[in-house]
Each structure stands twice: as C-alpha cells, then as structure tokens.
C-alpha cells in the first residue's frame, strides 16, 4: 500500500505530495497527519503541493480538513507551492480554501509558520 511520508522538522511536520493522490491515499494522509500532530506535539504542518497538477474538490476538502483538524490540535497548516493553473482552476471551481494559510514556496511557508507560532509569546511580552 502506498503511503505519503511525513517528515518531522523541529516543531513542524513536512509533507511533500509527489504523486497524484487517489482517494484512499488522501484519506490516509489526513488521518496519519493528525496522529502525527498528536504524537509529536507539532505546532505546524507544511504541505508542499508543487508537484500536484490537479486539485479537485475532493483534494481541496482534504486540505481544508487537515487545516481544520490541525487547528483544533493547536497546530497551524500552511500549503505551499501551488501551481498558477491550479489556483485559477480552484477559484473557478468555487473552492477558496478558506482558513488555510498559503505561501509561494517552502521557505516562505516556513517563515509564515514560525511567525504564526511565535506570535502568542510576543503578545505575552507586550502585555507584561
């Protein structure tokens, strides 16, 4: 059975989707990721979809689910590397990926995640 590898990187989990996912694989990724967030107490999830040429409503829903589930597990999700044609198609399809953070590449995604999880600390400092 195929599996999408999930890499741990400090406080974050990294997923690079290299193949077009069929439904079972996508659903497995969703549950594996949430298990990993719980097990590793990760604060952020970074999903690289630069190799995906198609994101249909099913895949979009999986991405939204992962972001939503991570959020209630106290982790932020950033989707990086979306191809321009995929972005155009998603909006016409009617899928806006609300509530999902996006960044152009892995590097920018990482700094976005870092800013997301360090923000509360800074707030506390300001209050004090």
């Amino acid at each position: 059975m195929d599996k999408i590898p999930i890499l741990r990187f400090g406080h974050f989990l990294l997923v690079t989707i290299q193949v077009d996912l069929y439904d079972r694989l996508a659903l497995n990724l969703e549950s594996d990721l949430i298990q990993m967030v719980s097990k590793t107490q990760a604060r952020g999830v970074l999903i690289d979809i630069s190799a995906l040429s198609i994101v249909d409503s099913f895949m979009g829903r999986i991405i939204g689910n992962i972001a939503g589930m991570s959020k209630i597990m106290d982790a932020q999700t950033v989707v990086v590397g979306m191809q321009p044609a995929v972005a155009i198609t998603l909006i016409e399809l009617g899928l806006e990926l609300k509530g999902v953070y996006t960044a152009l590449n892995v590097e920018k995604g990482m700094s976005l995640l870092q800013s997301k999880i360090s923000l509360p600390d800074e707030d506390l400092d300001n209050i004090e």
């Binding site: 040429s53 198609i54 249909d56 409503s57 099913f58 191809q83 044609a85 995929v86 399809l93």
Partner: peptide, 17 residues
C-alpha cells in the same frame, strides 16, 4: 495550454468521481 488543461482535467476528475 496548461491552464485549460488543468481546468478540463479538474472538471473531468469531479465528474468521474
């Protein structure tokens, strides 16, 4: 072109699903 390709394949993916 790649944008039209993506649109068609995405639509096809929805319908085949």
């Amino acid at each position: 072109g790649v944008v039209n390709q993506t649109k068609l394949i995405t639509a096809a993916s929805e319908l085949v699903r």
